[in-house]
């Protein structure tokens, strides 16, 4: 009674369905990959790492002292960044939960955090290459250097703060002299 359905109909149906799904998934994955590629790194440059790597790759190997100090600079910068990232992490978590920042930023930040970990590991490996067990010494010195840098920066900033306050006082004196 019913009009006979061609055998090809279900086959075509399934083929179309599957191909659409496959196309979707490949396109989706490619786009996701591209968006990850296009993601801006949290810290775009790392000069001290570049310096160290150039030195390490030089044909006549530079003296160990030079390499060590370059590595120390690199570790210092790493420490500074790790600290900054850890400080910001808590705030970002709160903000992300509240919906005050985008998912992209969260993704970018967490990815950079992972990159930072890799960088630290790489740094430790390099240190151990110079001398077995040197990594812990390297990082504790680097930490001290970072702290010292921070204090120095703060000290240097004091002059500017003093000048600012001076200016503010002068402005306030406009009124004070009137009294």
């Amino acid at each position: 009674m019913a009009q006979s359905v061609s055998l090809y109909t279900p086959v075509i149906y399934i083929a179309v369905l599957l191909s659409v799904l496959v196309i979707f998934s490949t396109v989706y994955r490619k786009r996701k990959l591209r968006s990850l590629e296009g993601m801006k790194p949290w810290y775009p440059t790392h000069t001290s790492r570049d310096i160290y790597e150039t030195l390490a790759e030089m044909a006549p190997k530079p003296p160990t002292k030079v390499l060590t100090s370059a590595l120390l600079r690199r570790a210092t910068e790493d420490i500074r960044r790790v600290v900054k990232i850890r400080e910001a992490k808590g705030a970002l978590a709160t903000l992300h939960q509240k919906g005050s920042v985008s998912d992209d930023l969260w993704l970018r930040f967490t990815k950079s955090e992972k990159l930072m970990e890799l960088e630290l590991q790489d740094c430790a490996n390099e240190a151990n290459k110079i001398k077995e067990g040197f990594a812990s010494t390297l990082f504790s010195s680097a930490q001290e250097i970072a702290q010292n840098d921070a204090i120095r920066q703060r000290l240097g900033n004091l002059d500017k703060i003093r000048d600012d306050f001076k200016k503010e006082m002068e402005n306030a004196n406009i009124t004070a002299s009137k009294k």
Binding site: I79, V83, L120, A124, A127, F139, S140, Q143, Q147
Partner: peptide, 12 residues
């Protein structure tokens, strides 16, 4: 720093 240092030391 202290905490990061510790974890760094552990890593290698």
């Amino acid at each position: 720093d202290n905490t990061s240092d510790e974890s760094d030391d552990e890593d290698p």
